[in-house]
Amino acid sequence: MRVKDLKKKSGKRIDTKYIQSLGIQSYGDDNLYPQTLRNIIAASSTGSECAERFANFIEGNGFREVTFSEYIVNRRGDTADDIHAFVCTDVGSHDGLALHVNYNVLGNIVELQYIPFENCRLLEEDENGYVAKIAVHPDWTGKKTRKGKAIQVNRDNIDYIDVFNPRKEVVLAQIEAAGGIEFYKGQILWVGGNGKYVYPVSRADRVVTEMSTDEGLANVKYRNVRCNFMPSGMIVTKRGISPVHLDEDGKPIEENKSSEDTGFSDTIIQLQGDTNAAKILEVTLESDEEKPEFVDISSKNYDKDFTVTDTSVVERIYSAFGQEPWYCIRIGKVGFSGDILEDAFEYYNSIVSKQQRMIERAFQKIFAHWYEPVNLSNDFSVQPLKYVRNATVSNSNR
């Protein structure tokens, strides 16, 4: 089928529109794309496992330059390695990062802070295609609270911070416009994997349907074990004739059977789930059967109905994250040995190299304008993860 014949069936992954009341470009139709995606990943056991491995390999063993990695970069005591770890999680989940920098009166960077990428939104472009500021809110869902009150999503609770531009004349002009260094909010280096000032599409986005299906399959398995009926059978016995009660006129009193509590509902609950398996249900009737009757009850196992779906969903999620070697190990297609794991580690380090270079360039841009030299080698590369055969070897192999 031709591409133009499919364009009506395939839409944009992220819908962006202008929210005039806030002066921002929405990140998704409801402006909650990263938050929604994060929840989808977290609800999928396979998706969260793959996303965590992806972020771990991006982080590697931290910066090669140990001295730089231990350098304190802000008043909170965070080191460069701490900021790097936070950023790698965002790059793994959202394919983007946001770093906040503060300047001194001389226009030099003196502080670096991490900002969660999902907290940032882009302002609308000007006539030159330039985005001047980044809008930052602690929770765009409006559910986060401070002093017991929700932080509403409005202009009063949003910080509009200048985008990263370390040229001294620009910084000094911004400080003067803010009314002095004490009122200056600094700048944000915002980087997205889809291009300059374009909301990125996460690697996980390509399998959001599969990850949601993975969550649904887990729910089916849960209900199959916890809520399914698993008694071994049912015994039906007869009940004796109830005595007839007469009123003052000698007329029989009709019993209100509809209001009679048989306790059957409670019995049903007691027969559900794994802890109540193989129990026998006894049902007493008012009819005149001469002997008890045993009725076999065969429970329905739904796991078999979803075996193919389960397998294909897991395979596609692993494939989307480029983790085929671990999938092959998982299903037993290849053996589990040190050589195979070493090859898997080497292979996946090549997969995450693009994300690592994006982070390296971001740190290099910032520390090129730091108020003092802290990385004389100018090496901001990351030491890749390696499979360690000997479990007794120290985790620190820098």
Rank of each mutant, 00 (worst) to 15 (best):
I297Q: 10
S93H: 15
V163I: 14
L6W: 03
K7N: 08
N219M: 06
D81W: 09
A218M: 02
C328L: 11
P325W: 02
I41T: 05
G332N: 08
S319T: 12
V382E: 05
F336K: 03
E254R: 08
F57Y: 12
K300T: 14
I366V: 13
G186W: 01
M1L: 07
R146I: 13
S258F: 15
N128C: 07
G332E: 10
D29I: 12
Q20N: 08
K279Q: 03
V236W: 00
E315N: 02
Q174W: 04
Q272M: 14
R223S: 01
S48R: 02
K149N: 02
Q152A: 10
E324V: 12
V73Q: 04
E293Y: 11
I83Q: 08
I115M: 07
P231G: 01
N157C: 04
R76W: 01
N128S: 12
N154S: 00
Q113W: 15
C120R: 04
K144I: 11
D288E: 04
G193M: 00
D126Q: 05
T89Q: 09
I175F: 10
V295G: 15
Y302N: 03
N102Q: 08
A204G: 12
T89K: 08
A344K: 07
W370E: 09
I19N: 11
T36P: 02
Q35E: 14
S265R: 08
I340H: 05
D247Q: 03
A132C: 12
L281S: 10
G193Y: 01
S93E: 15
E315K: 08
A177H: 07
I366A: 07
D82P: 09
S232C: 15
A85M: 09
P200G: 01
F183S: 13
Q152P: 05
G192M: 01
R155A: 06
Y160A: 01
Q364E: 04
E255G: 10
N165R: 13
P243C: 03
E124L: 12
Y130F: 14
D139F: 05
V73C: 10
D379R: 05
E169C: 10
K354I: 14
N128Q: 11
V87E: 06
A362G: 00
N61P: 07
G180Y: 09
Q364M: 02
V171W: 09
I24P: 09
K365V: 03
K257V: 13
S394Y: 13
L172T: 13
R330C: 03
I19F: 06
G273I: 07
R223A: 02
K17N: 03
E70K: 15
P200Y: 03
P292V: 11
G195L: 04
T79I: 12
S45A: 12
D139A: 09
H84G: 07
R76K: 08
A391L: 13
H100P: 03
F336M: 03
T89P: 06
I115L: 11
R316Q: 10
F86A: 08
Y347Q: 09
K7E: 13
R121L: 00
D247A: 00
G77P: 14
I359M: 06
A135Y: 05
Q323T: 14
V110P: 00
V198N: 13
A278Q: 08
H100M: 06
S394E: 15
N390Y: 12
V153L: 01
Q356Y: 04
N224Q: 00
T267M: 11
P34L: 08
G180F: 05
N56S: 15
E248H: 04
R223V: 02
E124G: 09
T311K: 12
F321C: 13
D82L: 04
